[in-house]
């Protein structure tokens, strides 16, 4: 059984055309399923876990990065996680802005996403972890005044720029090696002086009293924050044009 979880913002009329296109395509492909609209649901965790309990084979996030993270957050710490990991796949249908996670998986638009769901190409994906928050793409923070502690050493950055902790690369133009299966995160620091720092790590602690850490472009967290990784945590349906091997 396919369960489509529509995010709340899709209630706006400007998304009607995209949703109609998607639903027609899903019908054509024989991928119809149950629809849950988050707008009317307060207990997302309960709703998602219940669908896993009822035997959902695929849970599809229809929306953006936030929708995907809501669904992952709803299932990852719950009692149904073992069932979710063994029996359920996560699919994504991107609609609207802020869809870097879908882009990482090679999913360009809603119609493309439907075809990808049918093909069922599956990858086990690591999840980044910051406190109680999970991320697929990255966490980022302005670099000036940031201190990063890793194992037996620390990094201090005085220059303005950006610190990125990457699990899953979202920009196809980026020329760095990033693998979301390897149980490691990539630390990338770029400053206005055009210099670049790159390390591969398993965990770190990041501190900047003046700035907040931004997760997948949507959630802001105060520092100090400890960031880690959990390997092969989610089975995701991906496109052949995904940005990783």
């Amino acid at each position: 059984m396919h369960v489509y979880i529509y995010d709340e913002y899709l209630n706006k009329s400007k998304y009607n055309k995209a949703i109609n296109r998607m639903e027609i395509r899903l019908t054509d492909l024989g991928l119809n399923g149950k629809i849950i609209r988050l707008g009317g649901i307060k207990n997302i965790k309960g709703a998602v876990q219940n669908e896993v309990r009822l035997g959902a084979k695929t849970i599809i996030a229809v929306g953006n990065n936030q929708t995907v993270n809501k669904i992952i957050g709803a299932i990852i710490d719950g009692e149904m996680y073992d069932d979710f990991q063994k029996k359920t796949l996560l699919g994504i249908i991107p609609i609207g802005e802020d869809n870097s996670i879908a882009a990482s998986f090679g999913i360009k638009n809603e119609e493309d996403a439907c075809n990808i769901l049918l093909a069922r190409r599956i990858e086990k994906i690591d999840l980044g972890l910051v406190g109680k928050h999970y991320f697929l793409n990255q966490a980022s923070i302005p670099s000036a005044g940031t201190t990063i502690e890793i194992d037996n050493y620390s990094l201090e950055i005085a220059e303005k720029g950006e610190v990125q902790i990457i699990n899953l690369l979202s920009d196809p133009k980026e020329k760095i090696n990033s693998n979301p299966h390897d149980g490691r995160l990539e630390l990338l620091i770029r400053t206005r002086k055009k210099d670049q720092t790159f390390l591969t790590i398993r965990k770190l602690k990041i501190t900047n009293p003046q700035e907040k850490l931004l997760i997948d472009g949507i959630v802001e967290i105060d520092t100090p924050a400890e960031i880690g990784i959990m390997q092969n945590k989610v089975n995701v349906i991906v496109g052949k044009d995904r940005l990783f091997e």
């Binding site: 037996n152 620390s154 201090e156 950055i157 220059e159 670049q196 790159f198």
Partner: peptide, 15 residues
């Protein structure tokens, strides 16, 4: 595998 840029100061045992 590791690049430490010109703006970065590293303190500690780097391995």
């Amino acid at each position: 595998e590791t690049i430490i840029g010109a703006s970065i100061k590293v303190k500690g045992n780097f391995q």
